[in-house]
Design a protein around this nucleic acid. Sequence first.
DNA 1: AATCGCAATGACAACGTCGACATTGCTAAT
DNA 2: ATTAGCAATGTCGACGTTGTCATTGCGATT
Lengths: 337, 337
Amino acid sequence: MVSIKDVARVAGVSDKTVSRVVNREPNVTPDTIEKVQLAIADLGYIPNLAARSIRSSRTNIIGIITDFISTTPYSGDIVRGVQDWAGANGRTVLLANTDGDFDREANVWRTFKAHRIDGVLYVAMYHRVVAPTAGEVTIPTVLVNSHPEEGYAYPSIEPDDFGGSYDLTQHLLALGHRRIGYIRLNPLLLGANQRLDAFLAAAQAGGIAENDIIIRLGMEGPIGRETNYVYREALDILSMPDRPTALVCGNDEMALQAYLAALYLGLRVPGDITIVGFDDFRTVSLALKPELTTVALPYYDLGWQGADMLDQLVQGKGSETERRVLKCMVVTRQSSA
Amino acid sequence: MVSIKDVARVAGVSDKTVSRVVNREPNVTPDTIEKVQLAIADLGYIPNLAARSIRSSRTNIIGIITDFISTTPYSGDIVRGVQDWAGANGRTVLLANTDGDFDREANVWRTFKAHRIDGVLYVAMYHRVVAPTAGEVTIPTVLVNSHPEEGYAYPSIEPDDFGGSYDLTQHLLALGHRRIGYIRLNPLLLGANQRLDAFLAAAQAGGIAENDIIIRLGMEGPIGRETNYVYREALDILSMPDRPTALVCGNDEMALQAYLAALYLGLRVPGDITIVGFDDFRTVSLALKPELTTVALPYYDLGWQGADMLDQLVQGKGSETERRVLKCMVVTRQSSA
DNA sequence: AATCGCAATGACAACGTCGACATTGCTAAT
DNA sequence: ATTAGCAATGTCGACGTTGTCATTGCGATT
């Protein structure tokens, strides 16, 4: 591998001068700069970041720790957001996945420390409460799509499930719906309760009677291996003699099953039944016909802004306890009327 | 940061001896080993991999370059496969995304070279032909989910779309279907043609008459911004007076739209119409009711085995031109009968 | 003309680790 | 008793880079 010394020799200057050119330090003659840059291009020299980091004890690497990267596919957007931030700011991204396993997580922390990375984004693939103790964290860390357990102080960034759900419910009320079904997410998910609470709050504020709200549990059990009642419950709700005019689903995959149930029963969306989802998981929300009214989760921004928060933290400017919450926008499509 | 010398001081040995213990070299007294390990634990020493890599000019880091990581969510499984391999073999994964942009890709290669990583997995998020020239590749590279353009020699690993599609078609023939609809993927995708070709080959081999095969184009246009005709075409095929008894869809999202069309027309799956997909994108294939018969793409194994091929290559044992193809399994569920 | 100030450049050490080689001390063979 | 052999440990330098400080040379000031 060609090193700074090779460049120095070819350019006829000292290695330190090459270093100055590479790092754009002041007080170098334009002449010299040109000579050096020529030599660099000639030799195809690329600085060795490992060597640099030994001297400067900063690596410009940030790590991402994920738990279930593949089970909730849309949250890949978080990773993309982080990557784009990193690309735009001259950082590189180390990626590691724990599958939710404690030992593997401890290992990942060890590896990250061994690489002396600057900071860690601890990304939960579903919105939840989290305590990243496996590594006795000593690297600056920001929690993404989750927030710290009581008593732990980490900065965090998460979506405003409550606000999104509240707005979505208001959208239904504005359309005149007065009897509404609701199929709940797995209660283990943080978002599940926030979404339900917001739905109930908005419904109450809108003057909906309690017995005009039909709530069913769509899923339960450990994440990744849950049992799914959505289709059955949707069929059941939609077969009621006084069936609701709108059906709110915990997420878009549930909405998909609600569509199937509705169509199976010969109902038209949205003519006979309005159906809405949550997440704006576009593979589903746009494939559904009519396209699905849902709430877009700001996954990409969660990643980007999370990386930015981490950067602040690394530079000592960030708050140890900032808890940032990002708005979720209602996306109105043709499934609601 | 605590270094090997700190440990040496505390343990009362030389730094080299600590190094020996850390690297499990032979010829160290059990006594010494224990003293050193105690000191290591005491101080929380973790070797600095950057320093190590300067000496040994191997980093044990492999890089993943992806193009469209988020648009096709299931292919996150490839990344997971690579990660798991890396975790099991003491490597770390650097991740970078290009969004299909040439300049960004060139940048990524630069960064990877600057990190002196051992090798690169060039992961195409949809199966296609690829020529990773942006970096004038000098790092050992394996193409995943794609194969090299004519004239370029890279090892590659990809799914056997043809075989999977052939088997799936045979499954339909075995069920007695003699008149079959087919909705094509975007022709830009490598898999699109392989799947269609296999379908036609299997149908012909099974003695299906040409006019008992109804082929429609489901999508076209640039990846990520295509126009989608699937729902319309499905409605159209299923409204034919002599409608086919089975409908093959280019992928599972298309199958989803076919379900919606069938149900809209009051048809039962699989009673009135058998529908099958491709990919086994479980978010869809399992959410559909009845659950979808489809073909599972070996994404995870693509990642794992790709990483393994790369490792061989890095160690100089691999072939520069190996082209590995992984079998795709038909997953029989309730949508076909 | 002598001095000062400063821009431009270089020499050298240090970062943390490990490979090459040297040293020590013990056992076994003569 | 001497030596050879080898296991256990240590010394030192190198990897590629940059920070610190020193040196050079030149124009400006007195």
